[in-house]
């Protein structure tokens, strides 16, 4: 008997079956929804975060009973009253907000020339050096970097050693507000450069050359051409630096010497030191609210910058 000759290889047949299955599960009429399908993992992730926020909101309205260390069954706004009226929380909120604004401004001032040089230099070696110097800090955690500053700026640190050789008595360079701001600026600088670099790359060099050929000095070109065109990058970088600084925990804890708490430090204390999860949740929500408010103000005033992606930029 002759063997039946198969018209198609087996793998083709398998593919046919798979295609039929896919067509059954996801008919061609659904094709327009494919992009949204790819959004699903991100939506699930954001959804989980929202669920977490709902849980935190629920906890924030329950008051700790210090006789049983259980949260109340009944809802109350007492934690919010405490958070908004107790002077200590106002102090740390003010310190965190003002600190994040100062850090944002200083970081952008330092990051801009770095990013500009990195994208404009004609020297490949210099560009590589700047890139390596930019990424190196990412391999070193925030805590290790803070410890580095403890070693460098401590009473017996390198800086005081040098000052000592110059006859200057030992200075307390750590454990104060400027030390915290300094540590934050150093931590945020790479983030800002990374956010600024694409925006500066997008500015055609020919525009600067044209301005120069029309008689504009470098300063005028910078002010009237580069800076306005770099605004989306500045806004994007500023938002990232501001929100990260506002919510930072490690730098204020380590370089502040226990006397320069930010909001995140107070949240930690409530959750883990005094076991008051209700008040901790309240402070967490208020931190989210303050951060969102600041971002909203920036969006309103300057647009979303590079964070707007393909959308309309102001």
């Amino acid at each position: 008997m002759r063997t039946y000759r198969v018209a198609y290889p087996l793998t083709w047949r398998a593919m046919d079956v798979l295609e039929a299955f896919v067509a059954f599960v996801w008919p061609p009429s659904f094709r327009a929804a494919v992009p949204y399908l790819f959004l699903l993992p991100a939506l699930i992730l954001v959804g989980l975060l929202v669920l977490g926020l709902i849980q935190i909101a629920d906890t924030s309205m329950r008051v700790l009973d210090r006789d049983t260390f259980l949260l109340s069954d009944a809802y109350s706004l007492d934690n919010y009253r405490r958070a908004l009226t107790e002077p200590f929380f106002a102090t740390i909120a003010g310190r965190s907000i003002i600190g994040s604004l100062i850090v944002t401004v200083i970081t952008l001032v330092f990051a801009f020339p770095y990013a500009y040089l990195m994208v404009r230099t004609s020297s490949s070696a210099l560009r590589k050096f700047l890139l390596v110097a930019l990424f190196l800090p990412f391999f070193i955690g925030q805590v290790v970097r803070a410890y580095g500053w403890l070693i460098i700026l401590g009473n017996q640190g390198i800086v005081n050693d040098i000052l000592g050789h110059a006859g200057i008595p030992t200075l307390r360079l750590l454990y104060n507000y400027p030390a915290v701001l300094f540590g934050l600026v150093q931590y945020m600088l790479p983030f800002a450069v990374l956010m600024l670099a694409p925006a500066l790359t997008a500015i055609p060099e020919e525009l600067e050359a044209a301005a120069g050929s029309l008689g504009a000095s470098w300063l005028k070109t910078f002010r009237h051409v580069v800076l306005p065109l770099a605004r989306p990058g500045l806004v994007g970088a500023g938002l990232v630096v501001m929100t990260l600084s506002l919510t930072d925990f490690a730098i204020p804890a380590m370089l502040g010497g226990g006397s320069q708490d930010f909001i995140a430090n107070a949240i930690y204390d409530q959750f883990f030191r005094t076991s008051d999860q209700g008040l901790g949740a309240t402070l967490s929500l208020l931190l989210v609210a303050v951060g969102s408010l600041l971002v909203g103000v920036v969006f309103t005033a300057f647009g979303a910058g590079t964070l707007a992606m393909g959308g309309r930029r102001k």
């Binding site: 210090r66 107790e86 740390i92 006397s259 320069q260 204390d269 005094t274």
Partner: peptide, 18 residues
């Protein structure tokens, strides 16, 4: 101590960080 430490800690921090 546990019934009052939250207030004591807050008061101490308020004085020291205020």
């Amino acid at each position: 101590q546990v019934q009052n430490e939250s207030d004591w800690f807050a008061k101490f921090k308020q004085i020291m960080q205020g």
